[in-house]
């Protein structure tokens, strides 16, 4: 399970849409099992649509209020010919709902407004499970539900990777939940990669100044009550961004001349970590094609 983290507008959702083949890249290639997404034939595209499923942020917007919630579940069953009979389809849907901790008898036959936000979001997770996908792209799947349900939904996503071997790309701005459920993480800032690697070292000992800012900004229950005070002490730099330089330089407490001259390369500071910051320039540069090496165990 991999996680992709960045603030609003950093390009997370665009990345998801690229991966799903919903937008085409200006440059570069998205490959699914070695094949360029733009060149998939009819059959291959159909397989891709079945193997790669998406869960979107808004558990309200995806439902048509005039249809029962069954509709979003029966469509993929019919579309991909997943069941041979009605009874078969019912079993399949029931199984998917139970996999996300819902009781089918409490869900089926209802209209969207009769379900809670958490139930609707879990129905979307169940829908993504139906075609037995290889990869699920989950774009902020829990941002609109409260803390306790968040843990429940993410727990059911985590079980999918553990028990069914499904890969998940979890896109969020919530570093704490990402830390709990992901194996590897990509931290994006204004469309640029800031830090990438195994989730444990990146979150416990962040090296990029932006990741450090993110981690320090999480309000913690069991910690010194200095969260607000730290905000007031956050240094304000007056560095102006240059078109060529690091995109974080204007907010960075460590910004130097060098940051403004050229975009920082990704340096491999540890076997399983890459950091795009000149502070780590004594470490070897990690090429974009070798990024997988720091992400995969």
């Amino acid at each position: 399970m991999m996680q992709c983290r960045g603030e609003s507008g950093s390009g997370k959702t665009t990345l998801a849409r690229l991966l799903l083949g919903l937008v085409e890249p200006t440059e570069g290639i998205v490959r699914y099992r070695g094949q360029d997404l733009r060149r998939l034939g009819f059959e291959a595209r159909r397989t891709f649509r079945r193997d790669v499923q998406a869960i979107f942020q808004d558990p309200y917007g995806v439902y048509n209020p005039f249809y029962r919630v069954d509709h979003v579940l029966t469509v993929p069953v019919r579309r991909f010919g997943l069941a041979t009979s009605r009874a078969d389809a019912r079993d399949l849907i029931g199984e998917a709902l139970r996999a996300v901790g819902l009781r089918p008898e409490e869900i089926l036959g209802r209209y969207p407004h009769q379900l809670s936000g958490g139930q609707r979001q879990r129905v979307m997770v169940a829908r993504a499970l139906l075609p037995k996908p290889k990869l699920i792209v989950a774009d902020e799947p829990v941002s609109m539900v409260d803390a306790s349900l968040r843990a429940t939904i993410l727990g059911s996503l985590r079980r999918l990777t553990d028990e069914h071997g499904i890969s998940i790309l979890y896109i969020t701005h919530d570093l704490a939940t990402a830390y709990q459920v992901s194996d590897a993480i990509l931290v994006l800032y204004r469309a640029h990669l800031a830090e990438a690697g195994a989730v444990e070292p990146v979150v416990r000992r962040p090296q990029h100044p932006y990741t450090q800012l993110l981690v320090s900004a999480i309000p913690r229950a069991h910690a010194e009550r200095d969260w607000l005070a730290e905000e007031n002490e956050t240094p304000r730099t007056s560095v102006a961004l240059t078109p060529d330089g690091c995109v974080f330089a204007d907010r960075c407490p460590h910004a130097v001349e060098l940051c403004l001259a050229a975009p920082p390369a990704l340096h491999r500071t540890e076997p399983r970590r890459g950091v795009a910051c000149v502070q780590y320039r004594e470490h070897a540069v990690l090429s974009a094609s070798a990024l997988g090496e720091v992400l995969l165990p």
Binding site: S116, T152, Q180, V199
Partner: peptide
């Protein structure tokens, strides 16, 4: 206690504890 435990920790991993039931 359950509400506090549901908060994802930044220390130990794999400790997501939702409140059981609805």
């Amino acid at each position: 206690r359950a509400l506090i435990a549901a908060l994802p920790s930044l220390e130990a991993r794999g400790m997501l504890a939702g409140i059981p039931g609805l």
